[in-house]
Nucleic acid binder design. Structure first.
Lengths: 187, 187
DNA sequence: TAGCTTTGTGAGCAGTTGCTTACTTAGCTT
DNA sequence: AAGCTAAGTAAGCAACTGCTCACAAAGCTA
């Protein structure tokens, strides 16, 4: 940005700045309470660009939500997914990462739920289900994911509650044991 | 309501109508996406009355959220709470009840989170914790409640997913077994 | 019946929001 | 350097939102 007010053009950087700003603000404030002006200001661009690049606020959310799930799965691989999900779940200095996005996807409109289902939940449930040899493996995988989601939400609601205050290792072990009971034999 | 347009006065009925309408609409659409006009129309009253009776939209949410948790606990008693929560969780023709309100409390502003913690979660966690003899009983109780919450949310996100489609009895048994593993000994 | 209080109403305020439009200008090609 | 395209901008639109205000009138009491 020169003093004259004109700004260097870099469409890829602009696009990225908007995505980054949106991700952070949607995570902090939820979809509805994040305005396009907020996002543009945080990205250091004019708000009209949000519409130029993403079409609408909803589509921006869709873009924000796509990929992170796939990225985690690619990083970690399905064998270590559960451990990794739980480790991240209870990590103290966690970045505002995937779990927060899961929560915030729920506060968004229809497109967010669709994206969540297609791009975020399905690969996770597939991987979690593969850990259970039971015929109803997918149900069990869904229940595990639901639990993780619930913990994220519980923490958001009660930042000073027991879950937030728990020793991460201990909490992780508690959940791991119960989840194993669920995924293996539950009868 | 007479043909002349004047309406019979019944402050208690008006108040109740607003609470009922708000409960339903908050559950259906979330706090932010439910407008005071929506609520007033659904209640069949003028929107100014919402402010007269409840002070603000937020305070209305607080009023909506107060009590249901206590009511369920009073109905059921703590001995049967877990079973009842799970039964209701998977009931097919469930009314839009307490669980939906839990979800929607999360989409509301700060007062909702406070009310949720004070009036809804705490009694539940107390009761669930009492079922575990462990020193970290409250943490375990919180984790159980988080799971229930997660299931509610998962179903909202994926109305056609495995959880929503599951045989209620079966799903209930799966969770009950895992929860027992969590509440009893987890080491 | 008059007077007062409480409940109900219509209208409107001020601010906000997602989005559009017309214009500017950076950056590239010829 | 001229011309064109694409990226960036300021301003503004129309609709919406929580909330207020002045008034109407139901309902009660003396």
């Amino acid at each position: 940005m020169t003093d004259g007010g004109a700004r260097r053009r870099d469409s890829a950087a602009t696009r990225r700045a908007l995505l980054d700003a949106a991700r952070k603000l949607f995570a902090d404030k939820g979809f509805d309470r994040t305005t396009v002006r907020d996002i543009a200001a945080a990205a250091g661009v004019n708000q009209a660009l949000l519409f130029r690049y993403f079409g609408s606020k909803e589509e921006l959310l869709g873009a924000v939500l796509s990929a992170p799930g796939a990225a985690l799965l690619a990083d970690v691989g399905s064998e270590r997914l559960l451990g990794e999900l739980l480790t991240r779940l209870f990590a103290e200095d966690r970045e505002r990462g995937h779990e927060a996005l899961l929560m915030l996807a729920l506060t968004g409109p229809g497109v967010a739920a669709d994206t969540l289902r297609r791009e975020v939940s399905e690969p996770f449930v597939d991987a979690l289900s593969a850990m259970s040899g039971e015929p109803d493996a997918r149900l069990r995988g869904q229940l595990v994911l639901a639990w993780i989601l619930g913990v994220v939400l519980s923490r958001a609601t009660s930042p000073t509650g027991e879950i937030a205050a728990a020793d991460p290792e201990h909490a992780r072990e508690l959940m791991l044991t119960a989840i194993r009971a669920l995924l293996e034999r539950a009868d």
